[in-house]
Amino acid sequence: MTTIRVNGTAEPLEAASVADLLAARGIGPDTPAVAVALNGAVVRRAQWAETPLNPGDDLDIVRPFQGG
């Protein structure tokens, strides 16, 4: 099954790259203060476009929130 987990929730894998998946959520290369981890490792912003997504991948998209 070609699914991917995004922020802990499984969904069909429809994006070819990290950049494609982010773009579908309104996050572009210039969106400030967003970071991404693929399978537990940070994907630098400069690598978003060239990092492919594969079935079974685990992607986390984070940003700062209010907190102590």
């Binding site: 995004v6 922020n7 802990g8 929730t9 959520r25 967003v34 970071a35 986390d60 998209i61 984070v62 940003r63 700062p64 929130f65 209010q66 907190g67 102590g68």
Partner: peptide, 9 residues
């Protein structure tokens, strides 16, 4: 201080 959290989908 700030927390780091998953964005809402």
């Amino acid at each position: 201080t700030a927390a780091i959290r998953r964005i809402s989908l």
